[in-house]
Computed example of a mutant assay.
Amino acid sequence: MELSAEKRDAENTNNDDNQQAAFDSADGNSREAEEQRERQARDLKAGLHPLKYKFVFWYTRRTPGVRTQTSYEDNIKKIVDFSTVEGFWVCYCYLARPSSLPSPTDLHLFKEGIRPLWEDSANCNGGKWIIRFKKVVSGRFWEDLVLALVGDQLDYGENICGAVLSIRFNEDIVSIWNRNASDHQAVMALRDSIKRHLKLPHSYVMEYKPHDASLRDNSSYRNTWLRG
């Protein structure tokens, strides 16, 4: 009888913890939605055209062949943020084009509050679709993807965290990150939406890799799990 009582207490504690976590998550989403509405109202009042989400451009540059003790997180530098159509074009016109970026370089575009890291709370349960491009065409596809993200044109847009352009020696790699790798319907719908908006030729193969797999093998683009 005593052991059963302890078990019931433990189960009640777990249920209370789960309920509290759900309440905290709902409260956080409510605050985020309220802040978003307030931001959009301010932008409209100022005569601007607010975007659905506020975005941040980040930049990562590594020196080839040089090992450093600096962590990847410390190496990511914030460039600029924007929340309106006008703000986007002001900053985008001044950003270097992919063809002028050295290798290896990563350019990240993520929703505000989400860091371009596998371990970030918004990313840790998600993954990414990966597309490899010849360097002569990567800039055009990247720009089309940026416009689709900023304009909230892709299906399951609330499930998208951001995108990365990885400049490499022999190719450029574009990856689109989503929140939930286990939601197969959302993952495949995102793939189809990307193909439509980028007008990808049939010869291009898209690969998917969950972030927890990247953490295990310490690799962004090797050992992908799904192709389509």
Rank of each mutant, 00 (worst) to 15 (best):
L109P: 05
R222P: 00
V80I: 12
V66R: 12
S71A: 09
A26V: 09
S4G: 09
L107W: 08
L51S: 03
D17G: 00
L48G: 05
K45M: 11
V174Y: 00
D183H: 06
Q153A: 09
N123E: 08
S4H: 12
R62C: 03
I194W: 02
R62I: 05
D120C: 09
Q185C: 10
S182H: 07
H49R: 15
A148H: 01
I176C: 06
T68D: 10
M1R: 10
Q19M: 14
L48T: 08
A181E: 11
E73Q: 14
A96V: 08
Y208D: 05
N29E: 15
F55H: 09
S25G: 01
K7W: 08
V66M: 11
G157P: 01
N170I: 07
S138D: 06
D16A: 15
S138Y: 01
R168A: 09
A186W: 00
S103K: 12
A163M: 02
H197I: 01
A10G: 03
D152G: 03
G157M: 05
Q40D: 07
K128T: 02
P64D: 04
T224P: 04
T224L: 02
N18R: 15
F23E: 14
R140G: 10
V164R: 02
N12V: 12
D192M: 06
F23D: 14
T70L: 13
F169L: 14
S203M: 10
R39M: 12
W89V: 03
E143H: 09
A41Y: 04
A213K: 13
W142E: 01
N159R: 13
G151I: 00
T13Q: 15
C124K: 15
L109S: 05
S182N: 09
P50L: 08
H202T: 12
D81W: 04
L3M: 13
F57V: 06
A26P: 00
N29P: 00
K52G: 01
